[in-house]
Nucleic acid binder design. Sequence first.
DNA 1: CTGTTAGCGCTTTCAT
DNA 2: ATGAAAGCGCTAACAG
Lengths: 329, 329
Amino acid sequence: MPVTLKDIAKKTGVSVSTVSRVLSGDKAISVQTQQTVRKAAKKMGYRVNTVARSLKMNRTYTVGFVCPEITNEFFMKIAKGVEQELKQSGYSVIICTSNENVEDEARSLRILREKCVDGMIIIPCSNEGMHIKELFGDSCPVVLADRLVDDFKTDAVLVNNEAASFDLVDGLIKKGKKRIAFLGGNELITSAKERFSGYLKALKENNIAVEPELIRFGDFYLQSGYDIMKDFCEMKNPPKEFFISNYFMQVGAERYLQEYQKNKEDELTIVGFDNMDASPLFRFTERTAVQPMVAIGTEAARLLHRRIEGDKEAFPLISRFDVDWNVND
Amino acid sequence: MPVTLKDIAKKTGVSVSTVSRVLSGDKAISVQTQQTVRKAAKKMGYRVNTVARSLKMNRTYTVGFVCPEITNEFFMKIAKGVEQELKQSGYSVIICTSNENVEDEARSLRILREKCVDGMIIIPCSNEGMHIKELFGDSCPVVLADRLVDDFKTDAVLVNNEAASFDLVDGLIKKGKKRIAFLGGNELITSAKERFSGYLKALKENNIAVEPELIRFGDFYLQSGYDIMKDFCEMKNPPKEFFISNYFMQVGAERYLQEYQKNKEDELTIVGFDNMDASPLFRFTERTAVQPMVAIGTEAARLLHRRIEGDKEAFPLISRFDVDWNVND
DNA sequence: CTGTTAGCGCTTTCAT
DNA sequence: ATGAAAGCGCTAACAG
């Protein structure tokens, strides 16, 4: 049985409230008593029961983080930023997954709601936000990261997707490339949409006609990158330049090329989003826009913290980071 | 303000205890009352407050998961197994990081202890276990994953490291290779030690003398793989076969080779542990032992669950998985 | 400076 | 079948 304040009170002969005061650093206690209590607490191995404290204070010092997939390095870098930042203010983070579907997402949100988290950081798995609004709308602050939802306006932290993908595609065009294939992410998702806009904008500004057969959408995961790259390569007149919307689709695309194109002397070029530890091993990926993943998490955490503390300013606040640039080789 | 049982009681004219009974599925309540209460609860948007429930029941239905680094795909696959499995029994998981140091690990453990988790799954960052024992030793079940600690015997789930690395090294030797370099992980860590034993055993059984200059230990992270590979390649008489102790060190080693050896026609061969999405892009890695990462998590979770439910059988229980084999190309 | 008291929201005997 | 009452461990007025 864990030691409680009562046990310490009994042992030291003071009241429970005095023990509570000492242990929560109340200065208005005689040095004498402080010492006695602290010593006893230490000796008895006292650990505060935060469940009881939370019930009393109506504050759990816990925030929820929901993302589509927990083994995804991109999401976890954001989670790392969140955790690092919030830890400093005494919060812990419960990480939940939506497994890329709205039902699981809603389930996770419900659990977190019942655990009485003080705030939520969500990387939504779709463009739907009603379930978020219903559960947390007016009771607990919510910050979105990486993506927005259509039907719930709240604080969010993202990157300048359109500008970055414009720059990437425009760069290829300036080098004389005109047939640039587009490997998109899940079309429901903000970042996929915005990166596509950037692509279109670059073509338009350079007066290049859109070729619908050069545009394909996947789901931001490896297999879709593999499959789409395969389809492109099997066209009668395959493109040689590619914009790939995220890291995992790059891995898939590079794997396809590695398996089936290794002996061909084609000069293929890939540009796209993000850069991870293994990226320098990619053979065709040339230039990438790299999101400041940890910083996205840190910023989302800061924003959330402000809201938890009661800051009502400029709601909703959408914060956009610029990407960094990476050149391979 | 969230709706409480009291609110529902007031609204429906029954007592708080009746509402509680209905909502926790007690059958000994008139169908009439059940309906009324349920309807009211739904209409008012009632959500149980698990903080209060936990305090009363002395059970939080929360377990802690502590690992050295949250952005590490290997650890997160284990976490995924844990989360998937435990979710089915109504538990949620708080994931914390030790940042690869014992102080942070102890800090995380303390927080989890204060949050009154029902159990712990730990991937320890070193061979030290006293802080774990002191905090949880007799109050709350602890299962270790991937690694053991020296001074605290408890349930654990690992793989057959020695046998796997023996097989890998022996395989190279049988192909006539005699100078196999060893790139080790953090020497404090079980898996690093056991993989080294397997290497030594393979040399010994094949009557090959150990060459100390072919043995180097890193820390299981990319940079150490890079650095050690560099050192090996800069020897007067560099080895051509390598055993690399984990995936991240493989990435580092492959990156070094990619940067500095790309035009040389050396026939280098790498074997080692684990296989991730990007592994097929590795140029030199030939054969790997792949740990069933998700299954390790699942098993650890099952074990923990049994202990939480009070199973005292055969303590401590050490469960070892066999690895799978992967051949590149 | 310290003790007494009340109560956070819930579950659970014990009555009835 | 239902209600009254106690209490989980803690904090916070309010007294003194």
